[in-house]
Design a protein around this nucleic acid. Structure first.
Lengths: 224, 224
DNA sequence: TTCAATTATTACAAAATTGTAATAAAAAAG
DNA sequence: CTTTTTTATTACAATTTTGTAATAATTGAA
C-alpha cells in the first residue's frame, strides 16, 4: 500500500481528502502544519507528499525544498489560489505537480498515481528476459533470485541492457570497460567475459537467449 | 536547444504558442493534425510533445499512446475542456502532464521545463561531496577520477548515497548487504568495509568528511 | 569439402576481494 | 581517572576475480 503524507492546515478539507484517498487504497498520514509535517516526514518513509502551499505556520515552498534536498519523494502542491506565480515557484523548488482547489477527487488520484509512476518506475531497473538489474541497489536477479556478479561483469551487463537490441561492437565494449580506464587488455578477454556472464545469466550458456553473438561484429542483448 | 513538437489544429492558438515558446528559447515544430504530427514525430527526435487532446482529424489520446509506445518522450496535453474525464484518460495513456485552456504562458513553460527535467535527469547519478556514482554505468568517480570499488563496496556506497543525510543503523546496513542474501557475517565486518570505503573515497580516511560515524547507532553519508 | 577467420571454452597464475580474528584507539559511563 | 563499550585498524587465509595463453569449436568463404 502506498503511503501519503498530507500537510494541510484546513482540517475539514484534510479530513475529506484523507477519507477519499483511504477509500482509493492509500494510507494517509495527516500533518496539521509545517512543524508537524517535517517531523513526520523525517520519522517515516512516504511514497508521496501532498502539500498545501499556503500554510498558516510557514511556507509550503520551504518544506518542499527541504523534502527535495533529503531525497526524491514526489511532492504535489495543493493550493487555493490559482495564482500563476505560485505554480512557477512550486516547480522551481522541485515540485512534481500542482493542483488548484477546488479540485476533483478523481483528478487528484490521477495526479498522485502519475507522480508515483514517474518516481517508482524512474528507470532504476534494466530488464532483459528474466534478468533484472536494479541499478538503484547494484543488484542483479534472474527469476527473482540474486546473481552475484563481479564489478566488471556487472558493468558489462549494464552496458548490454542499457543498449538492449542494439549491436555493440567488440571495440565499443572494450573501450567502455577497459581502454577508457587507461588499461589495455588482450584480444580475447572479452570472449571470456561473455562466457562468464552467460554462465551466470543464461538458462543454457551453450545456447544463449540473451547475449547473442553477431559474428564479425560483436554482441547484442535481446529480449524475447 | 530543446525541441518541442506542437500538435494543434487551432492555427491562431498554435501560432501564439509557437511564438511565445520560441521567445523562451525552445525550437517549436508545428503539426496541424494527427497525420502530420505522427509523421513529424517519427522523422525527428523531440524533447517534448505538446498535444491537443481533441484534434479534428483524430484522437489525441491515441497519438499519446503511440508516442509512448515508441519511446519515452514526455507528452503534455492541451485541452479546451477542463473536463475531468479527459485528465484521467490522459494519464492513463501515459501523459506526463495536462494543462487546460486558457492557460497562462508562464505556467506552460514551467510545466514543460518540469517535464523535461523529469525525463532528462532521471536520477542516474548519486552525488555526495566530490564523489559521484553513475548508476547507469556502474562507475564511481572522485573529482572526476575513477575509483575502483569491489561489488560489495559499490553496493554499500549506493546504500549510503541513496540515503544521504539519513542515519543507517548497523543492523539496517548488514541486512541490506548480507542477511537479505541469506549470508551471515561477523559483527565487525561492517567496520572493516567502512574503513575500506573511506580509504578509497575520503580525502583523509582518518578524518572522514563523507561517511560519518554516529556512535552507538551506525553511519551516515553527509554532503558538506 | 577444405580452409581461414572468428568465437567459445578451458585452464592457470597473479592479483584482488572477502570475512574473521586480534589488537589498538576512542568515546562514554561510572 | 578507570573501566567498559564501541569503533578503527591491521594482518591473515580462503576464496574469487582478472587477464592471458592454449586449445577447441563454429562459421562463412573459397
Amino acid at each position: 500500500m502506498r503511503s501519503i503524507l498530507l500537510i494541510e492546515d484546513d482540517n475539514p478539507l484534510a479530513k475529506s481528502i484523507s477519507e477519499f484517498l483511504s477509500g482509493e487504497g492509500f494510507k494517509v498520514t495527516h500533518a496539521r502544519g509545517q512543524t508537524d509535517g517535517v517531523k513526520l516526514f523525517q520519522a517515516e518513509k512516504f511514497d508521496c507528499v501532498l502539500l498545501d502551499i499556503s500554510l498558516e505556520d510557514g511556507n509550503g515552498l520551504a518544506i518542499c525544498a527541504l523534502i527535495k534536498s533529503l531525497g526524491d519523494t514526489p511532492v504535489i502542491f495543493l493550493t487555493a489560489s490559482a495564482d500563476e506565480t505560485c505554480t512557477v515557484a512550486g516547480f522551481e523548488v522541485g515540485a512534481d505537480d500542482y493542483i488548484g482547489k477546488p479540485f476533483r477527487p478523481r483528478e487528484l488520484v490521477a495526479r498522485i498515481k502519475n507522480a508515483l509512476r514517474k518516481h517508482s518506475g524512474s528507470q532504476t531497473t534494466l530488464k532483459c528476459a528474466d534478468v533484472v538489474i536494479d541499478t538503484a541497489r547494484g543488484v542483479v536477479t534472474k527469476n527473482g533470485e540474486e546473481v552475484f556478479l563481479s564489478a566488471l561483469e556487472y558493468r558489462l551487463l549494464i552496458l548490454f541492457f542499457s543498449n538492449k537490441g542494439i549491436l555493440l561492437t567488440r571495440e565499443r565494449i572494450a573501450d567502455e570497460l577497459w581502454t577508457l580506464s587507461g588499461e589495455f587488455v588482450g584480444d580475447n578477454t572479452l570472449n571470456v567475459y561473455i562466457k562468464r556472464l552467460r554462465d551466470k545469466i543464461e538458462d543454457d550458456a551453450a545456447e544463449p537467449k540473451i547475449l547473442k553473438t553477431i559474428r564479425g561484429m560483436g554482441y547484442k542483448a535481446v529480449d524475447e
